[in-house]
Design a protein around this nucleic acid. Structure first.
Length: 274
DNA sequence: AACACGCCCTGCGCGC
DNA sequence: TGCGCGCAGGGCGTGT
């Protein structure tokens, strides 16, 4: 589920609730995530350390602790990270808990188990294969129309697949790729290498705009997304095309179409997007 | 290199 | 009411 706006929403809420606090203990209930949880390593490196900074890179949360340790957390498709009272019964699929002060714990819950929880030193983080191959952040200065145009040169793959490639730009998942292309009036199937400068300008601008709007609304909650305090997002009411097959386009009333690209549902307006 | 595809896993909504 | 099916926000490995 969580794309950049959702992860950023979680980051901001955790920044308010747990920044500076000490992680008093770690409990691993189930190690079976996409990458098996290394319980002893996690416990020994994290227990007793305070949270110095909470960052986000791509769709990863990076929680920097005392002693140059960095918690690396990915929410996968169905992950949640919420601060709750230890008195509340643990929900099904809570796999890892971090004990926090005042009788609270940070719970990592992930029904589909596509997420991951790991801990790395600063040096390990710098050379980590998951990190080094990542493209620029879409809300950074490095993300420009010219950058995209150069990267796309000669590529035959659909522009939507290109946008969702984390080596090109991070954080743009299926929802926001669809929404960005709609706002930029670019057909998702267009070969990336065949877009002109003007299209790239619109697209770069719309990607940033969509992501900023979504962050402002606290992310998109389709089924179960919530921030660190359990609050749902609101961007789903602003979706123009995602999961809107057959509904009239908000601009021209033509019915929204659904096709499959790269194995994922792709929604677009056949009249607005060329 | 670039690209297509399948898989990891559980839950949900749908049609029958 | 119950069952089987397809589908779901991500990322990685493998094949051509």
């Amino acid at each position: 589920m969580p794309e950049l706006p959702e992860v950023e929403t979680v980051r901001r809420s955790l920044e308010k609730s747990v920044l500076g606090q000490c992680i008093e203990g770690v409990e691993v209930i189930d190690t079976r995530l996409r990458v098996p949880v290394r319980t002893r390593r996690l416990t020994s490196r994290v227990r007793g350390k305070s949270i110095r900074v909470i960052r986000r890179r791509s769709k990863y949360l990076l929680i920097e602790l005392d002693g140059d340790q960095h918690l690396l957390i990915h929410l996968g498709m169905s992950g949640r990270l919420t601060l709750q009272s230890v008195d509340e019964p643990r929900e099904k699929h809570v796999h890892v808990c971090f004990q926090m002060p005042d009788g609270k714990e940070l719970r990592f819950r992930d029904p589909r188990r596509f997420g991951m929880v790991d801990v790395l030193s600063g040096a390990e983080l710098e050379v980590d294969s998951r990190m080094v191959s990542l493209g620029p952040e879409p809300l950074s200065e490095a993300f420009t129309a010219e950058y995209l145009r150069q990267k796309a040169a000669g590529r035959q793959a659909p522009v939507k697949n290109f946008l969702m490639d984390a080596r090109i730009v991070v954080g743009v998942g299926n929802i926001y790729a669809n929404e960005s292309l709609f706002r930029a009036q670019v057909h998702p199937k267009r070969a990336a290498g065949r877009l002109g400068r003007k299209s790239w300008e619109r697209l770069a601008g719309c990607v940033r705009q969509v992501l900023r709007d979504a962050i402002r609304q606290g992310g998109t909650t389709l089924n179960d997304f919530a921030d660190g305090d359990g609050n749902a997002g609101y961007f789903q009411v602003s979706l123009d095309v995602y999961d809107c097959e057959g509904e009239p386009c908000n601009v021209c009333d033509a019915p929204i179409r659904r096709i499959v690209l790269g194995g994922r549902s792709t929604y677009y307006c056949p009249r607005c997007q060329r």
